[in-house]
Computed example of a mutant assay.
Amino acid sequence: MLTLYGIPNCDTMKKARKWLDEQGLEYAFHNYRKDGLEKGWLTDRINELGWEQVVNRRGTTWRKLPEDVRNAMTAETAVNALLEQPGMIKRPLLDTGKNYLLGFSADKWAEALTQTKSDKPAVS
């Protein structure tokens, strides 16, 4: 099963959820703010995707950080910052069961989900 991570009121999240629904794909929704995040899980995502990709540096939360904090950001400090401010995580983040897709692109998601399905062994 797919898991979609984000916050419900984000416009991009709404587009992603609508697209998943239109494709008839079942998914669980994990609300960062309501359901929380585990440090180990977040550390793994940052190690896999890079903190520069995971942190939404276009958002107001990032821009409100002191300049010295932004300039000194590392993978380790990003984990702590995102645990404190989960709204600063770029969204959506889709767990396909095989990999993670960060940000919404209908074309990229369709391609990745088609590959995920074709990687499963055929049942005869």
Rank of each mutant, 00 (worst) to 15 (best):
M1H: 13
M1G: 11
M1Y: 11
M1A: 13
L2Q: 08
L2F: 10
T3W: 05
T3G: 04
T3Q: 14
L4E: 03
Y5V: 00
Y5H: 06
G6N: 08
I7A: 07
P8H: 12
N9A: 11
C10M: 03
C10W: 00
K14Q: 10
K14G: 04
K14A: 11
K15S: 14
K15Y: 11
A16Y: 04
R17M: 15
R17W: 09
K18R: 14
K18I: 07
W19N: 02
W19D: 02
W19T: 01
D21L: 11
D21P: 10
E22V: 03
Q23T: 02
G24W: 05
G24I: 07
G24A: 08
E26V: 12
A28D: 15
A28M: 12
F29T: 02
F29P: 08
F29N: 02
N31K: 08
Y32A: 03
R33K: 14
R33G: 12
G36K: 07
K39G: 06
K39L: 05
K39E: 15
K39P: 09
L42M: 07
L42K: 05
R45A: 03
R45I: 13
I46V: 10
I46P: 00
E48F: 01
E48Y: 06
W51D: 01
Q53I: 13
N56H: 08
N56A: 03
R57D: 05
R58Q: 12
G59N: 10
G59Y: 03
G59E: 08
T61P: 09
T61H: 03
W62T: 02
W62V: 00
R63G: 10
K64Q: 15
K64I: 03
K64F: 02
E67R: 09
D68V: 12
N71Y: 05
A72K: 09
M73T: 07
T74L: 02
A75T: 06
E76W: 01
E76K: 10
T77M: 06
V79R: 02
V79K: 03
V79L: 01
N80H: 13
A81S: 13
L82C: 06
L83C: 01
L83H: 03
Q85D: 13
Q85G: 00
P86Q: 00
P86T: 00
P92I: 04
L93I: 14
L94E: 01
L94V: 09
D95R: 04
D95A: 08
D95S: 06
D95E: 08
T96E: 11
G97R: 06
K98G: 09
K98I: 12
Y100D: 01
L101A: 00
L102C: 01
L102M: 09
G103R: 04
F104A: 04
D107R: 13
W109A: 04
A110K: 12
A110P: 06
A112S: 14
L113N: 09
T114W: 13
T114A: 14
Q115K: 12
Q115V: 09
T116R: 11
K117F: 08
S118M: 15
P121V: 14
P121C: 11
P121W: 11
P121E: 15
P121G: 11
V123R: 13
V123A: 14
S124Q: 15
S124D: 15
